[in-house]
């Protein structure tokens, strides 16, 4: 019952968003019914398509986990994009840079190096917040732009294959690849394992308790002897780590190399997914699959129903709009509940 009750708001949000999206599709002169059946067909009908959906869901799960974990610590990480990108790039560099390693070492090594890069990139805003009081929302966004520039420079000047006209890293070694079993990508299973791990960390460990305490009431947490600075930095680093894993899997399991621009919008999707999951790490999995199904079927929607693929952006934005406003909660429960975390606190002051 409890699960149903808390799932009600996201489900209603999705339904409302789809209805509003249908209206837009109708207005743009196409048939919503055709579009939505193409959406379903393109993502879930047939093992191959289902596999693609899971593949697309993988970085989304990690991006959603990154945002959700930071949320629990009272931090709004909009920098998933940059952290993911660094993870993907470093994993790519490690994937082709190391040669002669067995798969059992090379793949995890590349994965972890990518994650570490994401963690380092995520820790920067954490440190800036803890020591200088700079609000993470602005710093993480600025770091997204810096990361895009820095990655482009690294791809152009450092890791580009001689003679390649495109800005990208060389293909990774076979020993660094994350394989796909049948139609189920191993990367997806890794992401699911991380979702479970994050849940365990938050709910069962003393560290998770500290993170949640700082997120819900930082002053009371520090009165109880918890070092809020340490928690803020660690929370951001872990959040970046999770995003970095997402980028690594994308490079090692899907693309086989790093190319700039592959992840446009992934960071923002993480916010939608985390809010849709109401910051519950387990619920991040179905939320990510839902968003991934739209991305996976956008081209089929265009082909079959003639709808511009950007419609999925609009529907995702609508989902976020409905899920992030307490309006539905009020309508259905006549009371205030949901997140108690306030990101506005400490805005602009240390």
């Amino acid at each position: 019952m409890k699960i149903l009750r808390s799932a009600l708001v996201p489900i209603i949000a999705v339904v409302l968003a789809l209805l509003a999206g249908a209206l837009l599709i109708q207005l743009s002169g196409s048939s919503p019914l055709e579009a939505y059946s193409a959406l379903f067909e393109g993502s879930f009908v047939g093992w191959e398509r289902f596999g693609t959906t899971l593949e697309k869901a993988t970085p989304l799960i990690m991006g959603g986990l990154a945002v959700a974990f930071a949320f629990k610590g009272g931090l709004f990480n909009i920098g998933g994009q940059g952290q993911l990108l660094f993870g993907a790039l470093i994993a790519g560099a490690a994937g082709y840079g190391f040669t002669g390693l067995p798969w059992i070492i090379h793949m995890p090594l590349a994965l972890l190096l990518g994650a570490a890069a994401g963690a380092a990139w995520g820790a920067i805003p954490g440190v800036l917040k803890a020591t200088r009081g700079a609000h993470e929302v602005i710093t993480t966004i600025m770091l997204n732009f810096v990361a895009a520039n820095a990655a482009e420079w690294l791809c152009t000047k450092v890791w580009r294959k001689p003679g390649d006209i495109l800005v990208r890293t060389p293909m990774i070694e076979g020993s660094a690849e994350i394989p796909t079993f049948g139609n189920i990508p191993l990367g997806f299973l890794i992401a699911v394992a991380f979702a479970l791990g994050v849940w365990y960390l938050l709910q069962k460990t003393t560290f998770g308790f500290e993170v949640r305490s700082v997120g819900l009431n930082p002053s009371a947490a520090s009165y109880a002897g918890i070092s809020t600075k340490r928690i803020v930095i660690l929370t951001m680093a872990i959040s970046g780590f999770l995003a970095g894993i997402g980028g690594s899997i994308e490079t090692l399991g899907v693309l086989g190399r790093y190319e700039p621009g592959f992840n446009a919008g992934l960071g923002f999707d993480g916010i939608t997914i985390a809010l849709l999951a109401r910051t519950n790490p387990i619920a991040v999995i179905p939320s990510a699959v839902l968003i991934a199904s739209m991305d996976a079927s956008a081209s089929l929607m265009q082909f079959k129903a003639g709808v511009a693929p950007e419609i999925t952006d609009v529907i995702e934005a609508l989902i976020l709009l409905f899920v992030a406003t307490p309006i539905i909660v009020r309508w259905f429960f006549k009371s205030r509940q949901g997140e108690e975390i306030s990101f506005g606190a400490n805005w602009g002051s240390s």
């Binding site: 308790f209 949640r212 305490s213 819900l216 009431n217 002053s219 009371a220 947490a221 009165y223 108690e340």
Partner: peptide, 12 residues
Amino acid sequence: KHGLVGPHSVAD
């Protein structure tokens, strides 16, 4: 503000 983490349980 300083004594309790309101959303945490009484036990916590």
